[in-house]
Simulated scan of single mutants.
Amino acid sequence: MALTFQLDPPIDPALRDGVLALWADVSNAGGAVGFVPPVTAEDIRPELVKHLAAMAEGRTRLLVGRDAEGAVGATAFFSFNPHRLMRHHIWLYTVMVHPRHQGKGYGRELMAAATEAAGGFDGIEAIRLTCRGGTGADRFYAACGYKEVGRIPGAIRVAQGDDRDDIHMMLPL
């Protein structure tokens, strides 16, 4: 069964805890979402609080995918570009699908739902994102229609001696 997507869901303790659990599970499975395993929900909480504060200020929006049981199974955050000359592009980040749902096409569903949502945002002409090199994420995003538009070699230090490229990608709407 496919995920059910909702843009801007009401933030309550269940959603907050679901996003924290998802983020920890994705990180601990090796997902490139800002942390390196091992990580706990408490390690991630300060970063989620920043996301929620940006949402309260109207700078960020959340797309949530729920599985058949209603659990948070996927997320993507949109961040509006604050630079007055770049407001026609939106950033997509913290794109996650729970490891138990991977391999079912839910990642492509999430990206399609994100594209649809972004197309409804006033004045947005393109989605931008970055991903960590060496993970295959760039191939996944390319399969979803994104084009690589830049790469900063070795910009992400996963561990001493393990530097990865920061890959910038874009999808015109």
Rank of each mutant, 00 (worst) to 15 (best):
Y141D: 00
M111Q: 12
Q102K: 11
A159M: 04
G31P: 04
A56N: 03
N28A: 08
L7Q: 14
G136F: 08
D166C: 08
L22F: 05
E125F: 11
A137S: 14
C131W: 10
R45C: 03
F77N: 01
T75F: 11
V19P: 00
P172N: 13
G136S: 09
G105I: 10
G145L: 08
G161R: 07
R100N: 11
E148I: 14
D43T: 03
I44L: 06
I11R: 12
A2G: 08
F80V: 00
T94L: 06
P153E: 14
V33L: 05
A74L: 10
R108D: 05
A118P: 02
A142F: 00
F5Q: 11
L7G: 13
S27R: 02
V33Y: 00
E42A: 14
M170T: 13
V19I: 15
I124E: 03
V158R: 13
T60F: 08
E116P: 01
P13V: 05
W91A: 12
E57T: 02
R164T: 01
T130Y: 02
I156D: 07
V95K: 05
G31N: 09
H101L: 15
F80M: 11
P37I: 12
R84N: 03
Q6M: 09
A113C: 12
T135W: 05
A142K: 05
D12A: 14
M55K: 04
A53F: 09
A143I: 01
F80N: 03
K104E: 11
D12F: 04
Y141M: 02
V72L: 08
A76H: 00
L110G: 09
P13A: 12
E116K: 13
H168K: 10
A155S: 04
W91G: 05
I11P: 02
D43M: 01
I11F: 05
A113M: 10
E69V: 05
E116R: 14
P153V: 10
K50F: 09
H98T: 01
G18Q: 12
C131G: 02
I124L: 07
G154D: 04
P46Q: 12
V95A: 08
C131P: 02
L129Q: 03
F78T: 13
I156Q: 03
N28Y: 07
P46I: 10
L129M: 13
A53L: 14
A159T: 08
I90R: 02
I152N: 08
H88D: 15
L92F: 03
W91P: 00
A41H: 03
A112Q: 14
L7K: 14
R157I: 05
G34R: 00
E47L: 11
A113L: 11
D166I: 00
P46K: 14
F5D: 04
V72M: 07
G150D: 11
L129K: 03
I124H: 07
G119M: 12
I152S: 07
P172F: 13
D165Q: 09
A143R: 13
A24S: 13
P10M: 12
A74T: 02
R59G: 04
